[in-house]
């Protein structure tokens, strides 16, 4: 009996050779496209030895770039988390005129090239831009300064949290919120005790994706930053500068730190997914 079942399953599935071939192909692609570059980053970074690696990282410009990247992420991610939650709340829980327009607008940063996003801010806030003279009169620098980088990063990473949460909130509906309101909860209690706990896993995932992009953004930031060493260079920009100056080892050293930050994000995401899986099983 058991023997028959096994044979039937074998007949339904692909032949072992085909299966092995497909798995091999997939692994091969992953190795060439994902793993190999990562190995290259770390091996190039350490090509001139651990000491050179250390020197490249503690160099003041490199440290400034790391600080700036972390600062920008620390500003952009929380803001986009809050924006994202409220945008998803509007889109997921309510129907109103212009809902689909708002939904499309939130996707805008995904659909236009980051370079264009950067250009927009230069056109708006640059010296020749619409608000340029006004800003110059009040001695406020946005373009070629940290505020511009934060703005560009905010723009580019805007959709991550909102996109992650909108379908989730839409699927969960508004019954639980209505039940909470009838039981006397204020809007803040509804948000904190009912809405947020229901979306916490999606929210964490969205925040991690947003963070990874905020730290890694190149195009938009490159346009607004102005590449002032030690002042407006984020890590990706600093890597480029070093590489163009033929300091490959130093460039890869900084790149490896950036890659490590990205990997840490990925690990965090995987751990969270495991936790969620365990939780769901318990449930």
């Amino acid at each position: 009996m058991a023997h028959d079942v096994t044979r039937a399953q074998c007949q339904i599935g692909e032949a072992p050779v085909v299966r092995a071939g497909l798995i091999g192909l997939a692994l091969g692609v992953v190795a060439v496209v994902l793993v190999l570059p990562l190995i290259v980053v770390f091996s190039e970074a350490l090509a001139k030895g651990v000491a050179a690696y250390g020197r490249a990282i503690i160099q003041p410009d490199a440290l400034a770039a790391i600080r700036l990247t972390l600062l920008v992420a620390a500003i952009a991610v929380p803001l986009n988390t809050v924006f994202g939650i409220f945008a998803a709340w509007c889109l997921g829980k309510f129907d109103f005129p212009g809902r689909s327009l708002l939904s499309a607008l939130i996707d805008l940063p995904f659909s236009v090239s980051p370079v264009i996003s950067g250009m927009v801010f230069v056109l708006l806030f640059g010296l020749q831009g619409y608000f340029g003279p006004l800003l110059a009169a009040h001695d406020i620098a946005i373009v070629f300064a940290v505020p511009g980088i934060v703005l560009a990063t905010l723009f580019v990473t805007f959709p991550f949290v909102a996109r992650q949460l909108t379908p989730l909130m839409r699927q969960q509906g508004t019954d639980e919120e209505e039940a909470a309101i009838i039981l006397g909860a204020s809007w803040w209690q509804v948000l904190r005790r009912v809405t947020l706990p229901n979306i916490r896993w999606g929210l964490l995932y969205g925040v991690l994706l947003c963070n990874a992009r905020a730290m890694g953004e190149f195009g938009a930031v490159a346009v607004v930053s102005g590449h002032i060493r030690g002042v407006t260079n984020t890590m990706p920009l600093h890597v480029e500068v070093l590489y163009n100056e033929y300091q490959a080892a130093a460039a890869f050293a900084v790149a490896s730190v950036l890659a490590l930050l990205g990997l840490a994000t990925l690990v965090a995401k995987t751990v969270l997914e495991r936790l969620q899986a365990v939780r769901t099983e318990v449930v």
Partner: peptide
């Protein structure tokens, strides 16, 4: 407001707080 009315409401699909 719903809260001021002093009512109990049971929803069709119960709307229990799923994480509680």
């Amino acid at each position: 407001t719903p809260a001021e009315r002093g009512i109990g409401f049971v929803f069709q699909h119960y709307a229990l707080f799923r994480h509680m």
